[in-house]
Amino acid sequence: MSSRFKHPRQIPLETPDNSSDSSDSENEEGKEIQVEFEARSPEGEDFHGIKRLLQQLFLRSSVVDCSKLTDSILAQRGIGSVIKQSIPEELEGDDITDDPNEVYAISTVVNLAEKTKESISSLRRFILEQTAKGNDRQVLQYVTDLLKGSVGFLINERFINIPAQITVPLLETLVTEMRKARDRNLPYDFQHYIMISKLYKTRNLTTGVNGATTETQAVVFSNPEEELIVGESELCIDYDVSSESNNDVGGNWTDGVEMIPWRRIVVFRAEKLDGLIRSVRESFPTSSISS
């Protein structure tokens, strides 16, 4: 099994120490511990962790079967990475307090042209249904035509406390893997990518300027680097998920203003991916991440 692992990339991150009990929590408040993560190829043991991240994205959708989509992701050998906690070899099994199979992030792509797979056909149907809800025939026709071509569904999911910096090595690795797959005549030669971003919007705020009233709306991305991708996109389609998101982690409140969870379908040309990775690297310095 270890022969299929990628060379781990150690990523030191400071996270809150939740190990203290309530009796000493006052003294331990603000304490931080150093946690190391590693990126490697998805394995069967990662099924539940990957499924959980997909459910975080699709919520209670009755169209997308997250179990089947997870199976499709695991069936792709040599494509994609998961982030897991790095467990020192010297630790015995009983000394490990966290779940060693917890998946903190995933970066991968699936081919939307493989519509004979149930997981892919349901994902295609979901994208078309959300597009149709906008009641714009021209946009629906654009997406319908797009799905007739070579399109990859890009997955960039993680826990909210994992920083944007990890996106760079994960996407760089994914680009390399897709290039090697194309060299073996595998179907990873995409013209476009589609992804779904998690975001939050304020309710419309009414402001007055020189006696006139205007409505404004703030938008916050759960994965901030995805705002750069939106800036290079050909199409964005937003849909409200507030009725589905009772367990949606990471809701934001700013100055008492409620932030409502939304999702955004984003379409961008595949040729822009390399430039976007460079932009993410520049916008989110990786001084705290070592290869």
Rank of each mutant, 00 (worst) to 15 (best):
L69C: 10
L69R: 04
L69G: 02
L69D: 03
T70F: 01
T70M: 05
T70N: 03
T70L: 07
T70E: 07
D71W: 00
D71R: 00
D71M: 02
D71T: 07
S72R: 15
I73F: 04
I73V: 13
I73P: 02
L74P: 00
A75I: 00
Q76K: 01
Q76S: 03
R77M: 08
R77L: 11
G78S: 13
G78I: 09
G78Q: 12
G78A: 12
I79E: 06
I79S: 07
G80I: 08
G80S: 11
G80R: 08
G80A: 11
S81G: 06
S81M: 11
S81I: 11
V82A: 07
V82E: 03
V82N: 02
V82T: 04
V82C: 03
V82S: 05
I83Y: 07
K84P: 00
Q85E: 15
Q85Y: 00
S86N: 14
I87R: 13
I87Y: 13
I87W: 11
I87F: 12
I87H: 12
P88D: 15
P88I: 09
P88R: 05
P88Q: 10
E89W: 11
E89Q: 14
E90T: 11
E90I: 10
E90S: 10
E90A: 09
L91W: 09
L91C: 06
L91T: 00
L91V: 00
E92N: 13
E92Y: 11
E92Q: 15
E92C: 12
G93L: 10
G93M: 08
G93N: 09
D94T: 05
D94L: 06
D94K: 02
D94Y: 09
D95Y: 04
D95E: 15
I96T: 05
I96E: 10
I96Q: 06
